[in-house]
């Protein structure tokens, strides 16, 4: 069991090293932006995967509010936390990319503003769980926030259609991305996806163990009272 766990943990590290090789030594340099465009292979996968994660969290939150299944709630929490790390990365890398290209670290344009709102929703999600004394109530509040976050995802995605200076989607029918860049991006997406799954798996285990320990302590207290 431990051997399988080690392999699962080693896989993202190996993929990440190959990914770095592809990004810096294989992907061509953008003719207009230069080397700074390589942030793209970090910024786009983290942003896209965080959107997928928040959609999943919304679905799991609906399921939790209907069935009150604790396993679903734990998975939702693990996903939301890792999603928050990813969307934070997307915001930071986007800001670093914006400075040399747009001349500013931040601008209140639709894509950036809606992403920041999404970030605040998930910060609230994590805080509600941490600061609510009653865990069941905390889970309920978090589920509601998870649904609100999920509703915000399409708004973030389509916000580029409003008066936005942010580039539009790069994957799809209208893509103008050359193949040499596209396949590095796809590999990067797979890599960050595997890293995400590994982090979610580990976080889910800690949440499960936490639950087992607190249930055990509760049973012991009840026994001692009787």
């Amino acid at each position: 069991m431990k051997k399988i766990r080690n392999i699962l943990l080693a896989m993202p590290i190996v993929l990440m090293l190959v990914n770095i090789y592809l990004i810096f030594l294989v992907a061509p340099t953008d003719i207009n932006l230069g080397h700074i465009q390589r942030i793209f292979y970090l910024h786009v996968p983290t942003a896209l995967l965080s959107f997928v994660v928040f959609f999943t969290v919304a679905g799991l939150s609906v399921s939790y509010l209907i069935n009150k299944n604790k396993a679903v709630d734990r998975l939702s929490q693990a996903l939301a936390e890792v999603g928050l790390v990813y969307v934070t990365l997307a915001l930071i890398t986007g800001s670093i990319w914006a400075k040399p290209v747009w001349g500013v670290w931040w601008t209140w344009e639709p894509r950036l503003t809606t992403t920041l709102i999404l970030w605040f929703i998930y910060v609230a999600y994590v805080m509600v769980r941490s600061y609510t004394a009653d865990t069941n109530r905390g889970s309920k509040f978090a589920a509601v926030l998870g649904i609100v976050g999920g509703i915000n995802v399409p708004i973030v995605y389509y916000s580029v259609m409003l008066r936005s200076i942010h580039p539009g989607p790069v994957i799809g029918d209208e893509t103008k991305l050359p193949d040499s860049m596209l396949w590095v991006l796809v590999f990067s997406l797979i890599t960050f996806g595997v890293v995400l799954l590994a982090l979610v798996k580990e976080r889910h285990f800690t949440l499960y163990a936490d639950q087992v320990i607190s249930d055990h302590k509760l049973r012991r207290q009840q026994k001692s009272i009787i």
């Binding site: 030594l25 932006l33 230069g34 080397h35 970090l42 790390v85 990365l89 930071i92 040399p100």
Partner: peptide, 30 residues
Amino acid sequence: MFLLQANLPSNLGYLSAAYFVAWIMLFGYL
């Protein structure tokens, strides 16, 4: 490719900052 197009604006400071922050955050969380 990397060497051929070395005359383009590099902004290597920003590029390395972005990857440095990403690695720190992911490792920190891990």
